[in-house]
Write a protein that binds this DNA or RNA. Structure first.
Lengths: 194, 194
DNA sequence: AATAAAAGTTAATCTAGTTTAACTTCATTT
DNA sequence: AAATGAAGTTAAACTAGATTAACTTTTATT
């Protein structure tokens, strides 16, 4: 069952009755995207919060000069969305695009609002999820300021070994805030023992 | 009344009955800190989430080399804490220190857990607060990557004009991720019309 | 199997921001 | 009013990482 990984995930934070689980699932949609398809497009209002069953996405910002800046990757058991756009229902700053064929469970804005009413415990679930996301984001800001590019890459590799293997190198460079050329140099330095 | 600004703030997100307001206030502590005092110290477990009535704080990380990296400032009507330490009750990564004499309303870990049980609506309140904080944090990551130091300073000045005026320049440099010398150069460039 | 396109590498040159250090201005204490 | 220290400035020398550009390897398409 596709829903199993979502219910298992939720169960780590709160416990739902079978009835509540059914309500929850009835208000979500299982959806498949192909490689390169967009889940959210910069400028559009983000219509959903998405739990990934399988696959991999990147969330990025396209700047004035047409340069892509990746804010996050997401894989199985992670959430993806433009949360800023979702909560305010205003145009998205970010794009969310599939790097692989991706299957996800979508919570649309309206459905999620209804779910909060019908199962107030979900407020607690999402509070906890967003708390963790916020903490990770703050730590990343600090790492970007206090570590060199090489150190940041090493932290990335040990923190997200799965993503490091799955994602093309030029996207990792973008996530780290450096050019693909410089990441290439860093990698060859590491191979030659610093 | 000191509590007024907190209750007004909360009222923007959820509505509480007078009774609920009283429960909430009964589980908080009004506290004053002098300039330079620490609310949270790196290495200690963070015992509270704090709403600022008056004053100003900085949240910073002290790195290996003893360098201070400021993650955020907080003034009246903002929250301050080491949220990562608070939610996991593990040693803090950050220091929270008062830049001015600061008065705040403290929610201790235990009291907040009790409040979530007694007034489940508060889950919604804090979900929304943290959502906003997370969104701001993500946007900051992008700004740090896609803008030059000068542009980041200009964004900071227009986004937080009050903080720009209140806080010593070397702390703003730290927040922007640059040296005080370079911020000084940037400011003189701006004065001389770019 | 051949070709094209996408991803990754290498090296030379360049630049935004750091480091160091001496100096000035402002605030606080006596 | 003098003195000490904290905050801010200026400028020269330096470096991490960007840019440009030519090249190689891998992957996808016919």
């Amino acid at each position: 069952m596709n829903h199993k990984s979502l219910l298992d995930y939720i169960n780590k934070f709160i416990s739902l009755t079978v009835e509540e689980e059914n309500i929850l699932l009835s208000k979500t949609t299982n959806r498949r995207y192909l490689k390169d398809q967009y889940i959210v497009q910069q400028g559009d209002v983000c219509k959903s919060v998405n739990f990934i069953i399988s696959g991999c996405t990147k969330t990025f910002y396209m700047d004035q000069e047409g340069q892509e800046h990746i804010v996050m990757f997401a894989i199985e058991d992670w959430w993806t969305s433009d949360l800023g756009s979702h909560i305010t229902q205003t145009p998205a700053d970010f794009n969310v695009q599939c790097i692989e064929q991706t299957q996800l469970i979508q919570f649309t804005y309206d459905n999620l609002e209804e779910l909060y009413k019908e199962i107030p415990k979900l407020e607690r679930l999402f509070r906890k999820i967003v708390e963790r996301a916020f903490v990770a984001s703050q730590k990343r800001i600090i790492r970007n300021f206090s570590l060199s590019a090489k150190e940041r890459y090493q932290v990335f590799k040990t923190t997200y070994p799965k993503i490091d293997q799955r994602v093309p190198q030029y996207m990792i460079a973008s996530y780290l805030g450096i050019t693909k050329e410089f990441l290439s140099k860093i990698k060859s330095q590491i191979i030659q023992g610093q």
